[in-house]
């Protein structure tokens, strides 16, 4: 998630707080989606919705959870760091190029972070139940996916067109 570049220290601290919890959930395989919803403060409408689908690749999590050696099957296709980096670069290129079709964000906007979590998940008090914050009649674009040894991430951006 290093692709969210910001120089604002308050925003940084805010994201850091979220990332701490996300990391725990990701390691334990408790979440299946991460959503960043950009909302217009003026209309309250969601204008852009970035969705990251997280697939836990088989074997790895149960091993981490149980710690038992027999299920701790080493992934036999340990993915080279270089290849992962290339995939991440490719998706960053797409995010950069998304300005060719995304509307310019007008007015004041804010963002919300959502996760789709297992029903039995332990959530800190800051995390409360929410709706999916979807966009009606959205344009949707599927980005490249990337994967590590443990996770595969699919990215989808949905947005609503501005008034022409």
């Amino acid at each position: 998630m290093n692709m969210l570049v910001t120089i604002d220290s308050e925003v940084k601290a805010y994201i850091k707080k979220i990332m701490g919890q996300l990391h725990k959930w990701l390691v334990s395989g408790k979440i299946s989606k991460l959503i960043v919803a950009i909302t217009s403060k003026d209309t309250g409408e969601v204008v852009e919705r970035w969705q990251f689908d997280v697939q836990v690749l088989s074997g790895t999590v149960s091993a981490a959870e149980s710690g038992s050696s027999e299920s701790a099957k080493e992934p036999d296709h340990s993915k080279p760091q270089e290849e992962i980096q290339k995939e991440v670069q490719a998706i960053i290129r797409q995010i950069t190029a998304s300005v060719t079709f995304l509307p310019v964000l007008e007015g004041r906007c804010t963002f919300n972070v959502l996760v789709y979590a297992d029903g039995d998940v332990q959530a800190p008090v800051e995390w409360v139940d929410s709706d999916a914050k979807t966009i009606k009649n959205a344009e949707q674009v599927q980005l490249r996916s990337f994967s590590t040894d443990k996770h595969k991430i699919d990215t989808l951006v949905a947005y609503s067109l501005g008034d022409a």
Partner: peptide
């Protein structure tokens, strides 16, 4: 059996003025 959870604290307001060139 899925819950959708939202991080409740509001995102901080950016302290930078809106850059006109981005608009």
């Amino acid at each position: 059996n899925t819950r959708i959870l939202e991080f409740q604290p509001a995102a901080p307001q950016s302290s930078k003025p809106v850059d006109l060139r981005s608009q």
